[in-house]
Design a protein around this nucleic acid. Structure first.
Lengths: 196, 196
DNA sequence: GCTCATAAGATACAGTTCGTATCTTATATA
DNA sequence: TATATAAGATACGAACTGTATCTTATGAGC
């Protein structure tokens, strides 16, 4: 035989192939119709290989999502709280588009059913954005003297993120106009009201 | 025979029994484990009866939810925009608690997959609350001269509702403290910022 | 280069659930 | 009382889940 294929992948290599298959199946069929058989077939492997790694569908999916979403983002300082908040919301939009609406809903459903077990998933999606919001938008604004540390409450810190997430979940997207509206007519005024 | 049971219910009566069965199954097993067989068994009927009425599980569930949620609410004037907005959010909380977190997520998932077909569901859940918000909180405040019609944008009208819904979906509840925080540190300041 | 433990991949399975088809029979209506 | 309609029982194919069992490729250690 001329063809000397590496017919059996292992470890990292195999896992990458599985993640890719999950992602492709997700694009093609959506979260609700993503099956273990489908992923196994597309990845050129078999179900037991999947179940040896993850206990169930959602765990596998969460791992794939985590794998494809960057766990750090470098957002250059845009010079103002307004511009940086808009930049953060655009990062969030990209992440949500990558993940997809029904996948987000599926993960939220799983989290609702099993909060402790899914703490890492919560961290990947929600905690991460809060971190970026704090570091990229708020901390810089405090440094710059644009706002006072005391103006920032948890509610206000997460406010633009919550609105962005809700809009994406319900409408399926988050246009630039909405981002600007959230920042200009809700976030900044609410923050401003706490001055002094 | 002494016992003269109506052994075969029809129409309205049968439907009420089905809705009740859906609701009970929902309480007992949650949205993800609600099965057609289970509902049929509990309602003392059979699957074909369900499928003659609704095309699938989600449609049936949406109908049951619509059936149990009041389609009008009388919220007495509490005297101020602040108090009325809080009252509206408490109505919303009751509706969300009645529906349940995973059921909401399930319906949202279905809406995402099939927006046109589920327009009535959207109306029941989202449109209804907007209407209450407008009638109970905003219109009265305008009448009272507390705010100007021009201050109200769609974004601001739905702002407290979006925040309340997101918090309920992610955390599973909406405590009084959150309601007050939403109204006092976000909604009213954002509205105030548009004065003049 | 050989041996061997490990894990990949194939296959088959029981158990659920969905949605449908088919049939019998109770019940409202004319 | 006759008849159309729909309820309810039952059974089914199809899809999917998660597991069990088996063979065999492959990397690590000798």
């Amino acid at each position: 035989m001329v063809q000397e294929v590496r017919s059996r992948r292992r470890g990292r290599e195999l896992e990458e192939a599985i993640y890719q298959a999950v992602w492709d199946e997700l694009r093609e069929h959506g979260f609700t119709r993503l099956t273990m058989d489908g992923v196994a077939r597309r990845a050129g492997t078999s179900k037991p290989v999947l179940y040896r790694r993850w206990a169930n569908r959602v765990e596998m999916l969460a791992a794939a999502a985590t794998h494809f979403l960057p766990d750090s983002e470098t957002v250059p300082d845009a010079g103002s709280l307004r511009a940086n908040t808009i930049a953060v919301l655009k990062v969030m939009r990209e992440r949500m588009r990558t993940t997809g609406r029904t996948t987000m809903l599926g993960l939220l459903t799983e989290i609702a059913a099993n909060p402790e077990a899914n703490a890492p998933v919560i961290e990947t999606f929600i905690g991460f954005m809060r971190k970026i919001m704090t570091e990229v938008a708020l901390a810089r604004a405090v440094d710059r003297g644009e706002i006072e540390e005391e103006q920032i409450t948890t509610r206000l810190r997460t406010l633009p993120l919550e609105l962005a997430r809700m809009e994406f979940i319900v409408t399926g997207d988050l246009p630039d106009v909405s981002i600007e509206e959230i920042v200009d007519t809700v976030f900044l005024p609410a923050l401003e009201a706490r001055r002094r």
